[in-house]
Amino acid sequence: MSKRNNRLSDDELRIIGQSVTTVMLGFDDALKDFISDCVRRGLREYTITYYKREVNDFRRWLLFTDRSLMISEVVRRDIDEYIDYLQQHKQLKPGTVNARIRALRTLFNFLYNTKQIDSNPMHKYPLMKERRGNIETFTIKQIKALLNTPDLNTFTGQRDYTFMLLLLETGIRLNEATGILAEDIKMSEGVVFIRQTKNHFHRYVPIQSKMKEQLRRYLKIRGTCETEHLFVTLDGKPMTRSSLQKVVRFHGDNAGIKGVRLSAHTFRHTFAKLSVINGAGIFELQKILGHSTMEMVRTYVNLFSSEVNQKHKEFSPLKDL
């Protein structure tokens, strides 16, 4: 064994400048601290699962490329090469890559802010540009087919019909529908209380007579259950997010619907489209949908507003030719 050089290298000098906690903190311990903080802050289970999934993908890549799992040794170049791998090797779409970037950015921001690392490799890390494509919605014919598919002589049929009708009436997210309790249906006020929101701001969404009538029928059939959740299984247990997601796909397949994504989110887009067509204002739409910014609401208005088409008839350059 050769004699070591007494003069420390640049890398060894950097280690001296770091705190003992930073030097010794491994990737798994860092992730554990981060997830514990997420739980303390009351983040949704779905959000925590998202962080675990995306961050662990980066961990697997570090192992795959024989890199250190010491969190303080992750540098900007590692992040760049990981993103290149996602784009070029796995050929992931920009939206999927951005999901990974956001998760890693949140993790490293937490570690840096809590002084567990001395430098943040994700500081101001840019997202990929996404080209927003056409937003898929159901046609009126497809909506009728979906709503006519459940067997209303069965409990599950009544439940699924109520669920899909509520998605169409309110445009709520799948996760929001999962968290609705029976007590959140305010019949006299004509609203549903949405407690499990994306941005943690509770809100009320309005419902009209047809929706209230169906909810009354369903609640009577549902009866008393051990759980307070609105949508329940035959065993009286709360429907999970994944089981509710399968409802739309199941009935869409049975209805023979093709060419559109069979999901609760397509109902959300459909609600927005029909609301804009029927004259909903941008602020009303933002409040009902629960968007924290106007960006997505403006997208809906730009895509689905018929006002521009009507005005174009008046100023079209070809009008008098």
Rank of each mutant, 00 (worst) to 15 (best):
H89W: 07
V232G: 00
G236F: 02
S305G: 12
D253A: 11
K129T: 15
R195L: 09
T106N: 04
F267K: 03
S316W: 08
F27D: 06
G179D: 05
E213M: 14
A280L: 12
T21L: 06
T96A: 03
L321G: 02
N254E: 10
N98P: 04
E213L: 14
K287E: 13
Y161H: 14
R105N: 11
T299V: 08
T197Q: 08
Y82I: 05
F64M: 15
T299L: 14
S316E: 04
E226Q: 09
I207R: 03
L167G: 11
L69I: 15
F193I: 09
R14S: 12
T197C: 01
T270P: 05
E284K: 03
F110L: 05
R102V: 15
Q88D: 12
L174R: 13
E12Y: 13
M24P: 00
F64D: 11
I180K: 02
Y161D: 09
T197V: 02
T240P: 03
M1Q: 09
L244N: 01
L234A: 04
R241A: 10
R203N: 05
R7V: 15
V192L: 06
T162C: 02
E228I: 00
D235R: 07
L13H: 07
A177N: 01
T154W: 03
N109P: 02
N134Q: 11
A280C: 05
S19I: 11
R67N: 15
F283I: 06
I185P: 00
I83M: 14
N6L: 14
N5Q: 08
I207P: 00
I288K: 05
P94E: 10
T47H: 05
D118W: 04
K32T: 02
M70G: 14
M122T: 03
N302K: 14
K258A: 07
P206S: 13
T240H: 05
Q208H: 15
V97H: 09
N56Q: 15
R241D: 03
